[in-house]
Amino acid sequence: MSDNNVFNMDEHRKNINPSKLIKSALLIIALLLIIGGIFSSIFVVKEGEYKVVRQFGDVVRIETSPGLNFKIPFIQSITTLPKYQMLYDVNPEEITTKDKKRMTVDNYAVWSVKDPQSMISNARTIENAEAKMGEFIFSVIRSELGQLTYDEIINEEKSSRGSFNNRVRDRVNELLDRDAYGISVTDVRMKRTDLPDANEKSVFQRMISERESKAQEYLSQGDAESDRIKAETDKEVATILAKADADAQEIVAEGEAEAAKIYNEAFSQDPEFYELYRTLKSYRTTLNDETVIMLPSDSPYAQLLQGISE
């Protein structure tokens, strides 16, 4: 570098005013602070959420409509609350039914924040609101199920259960409104009902005994019905056979009468031939190789056998 250039740079440094540099730096910092303040004062409210504006920890306003909004930078802060419906899984608890049976019920609830100001004032956080809602749900369910028997609870087809879920929902909302928690329950549903571990084995054994007793009752009814059917069948068979036997005897009697009539008509035409026929027939019946007949010698039958004619 030439000596002239070095000399010019030195002269330029001498002409720079330090105060101007400081002012420029301060101006730049101020602009940055202004820009940062503008951006930090803007916040966006989205669909399905509440924006809570706090100042030194106190709630000054709550924005509910979607869009751009402003706050005082560095003084006011923003927190968010859900506006959409949420699902809360209620912890399983044991209850006692109307017929003194212990059972474990597991429920869930669909809920939402309807008044964020009241919710913040009384519950403060979402977790606290859910805890309080869970207490109310269990209390109401225990009271409602305590008026039903075990069979009515586990069998939805039985009319006694009716609008159980609706009754629980309405009663829980009444309690939440009473204490101004700013939340609302849309629905309460029972996921499942279980027996406590300590009672499960004994209940199952009792159920088995009841089923066996019922099965034996059905078997006894079946045996009684079978005996009744057999008795009726035997009676019908005996009636049919007796009628058939009577009909057969009547037919035989009629046949014998008709035969006797025919015999009488035939033999009356020649009595001597009929007498001979009866004699010959008696020979066939009475005489064989071992027959011994003792007759008087003057008996016509003896004379006939000996070939002696009168």
Rank of each mutant, 00 (worst) to 15 (best):
Q85F: 05
K132N: 14
E212C: 03
D187C: 00
K201H: 09
I183N: 04
Y88M: 10
G146C: 05
P82W: 01
D99I: 00
R206E: 15
L145P: 04
S184G: 03
F204N: 13
R161Y: 01
S209F: 08
A180R: 15
A109P: 05
A123H: 02
A215L: 14
D170F: 06
Q85E: 12
D106Y: 12
D106S: 15
I154A: 04
A198T: 15
V203P: 04
D187S: 11
L195R: 07
D106N: 13
Q117V: 11
A215P: 03
E130G: 01
N128Y: 05
Y218T: 12
T97F: 06
R189K: 14
R102I: 01
I126D: 04
E93A: 14
T96I: 15
K98W: 02
K132C: 07
E174P: 02
Q216P: 03
D115K: 00
N173Q: 04
K214M: 13
F204V: 14
R167H: 05
A109L: 06
K158F: 11
A215F: 11
E212G: 02
E144V: 09
R171V: 08
M119Q: 07
S202F: 08
N199G: 09
N91W: 06
A215C: 03
K201W: 06
M119H: 02
E93T: 15
E200A: 15
L176G: 00
D177N: 13
Y88P: 01
L219R: 13
K201G: 10
K98N: 07
N166F: 09
Q147I: 02
S118V: 06
W111K: 03
I183H: 01
M133W: 02
Y218G: 06
A198S: 14
I126E: 05
M86I: 07
K214G: 11
D177A: 13
I126A: 01
S202T: 12
K114P: 00
S160A: 15
P116N: 05
D115E: 10
G182Y: 01
L87V: 13
E156L: 11
S160K: 10
L175C: 05
T125N: 01
M190W: 02
W111I: 07
G134N: 08
T104A: 08
E127W: 06
P82T: 07
S118M: 12
R178T: 15
L195V: 07
M207V: 13
D170R: 05
E156M: 09
Q205M: 11
Y181C: 02
V140Y: 00
S184Q: 11
E212T: 11
Q216W: 07
E130V: 13
N155S: 09
A215E: 14
F164A: 03
T125W: 02
S121V: 11
T104S: 09
V110Y: 12
N155P: 03
F204G: 08
K132S: 14
M86Q: 13
T193D: 04
K201P: 00
S184A: 10
V90C: 07
F204M: 12
R102V: 00
R102K: 10
S160N: 09
D89R: 09
E156H: 09
Y150I: 07
I120L: 12
L219T: 10
W111L: 06
I126L: 14
I137F: 05
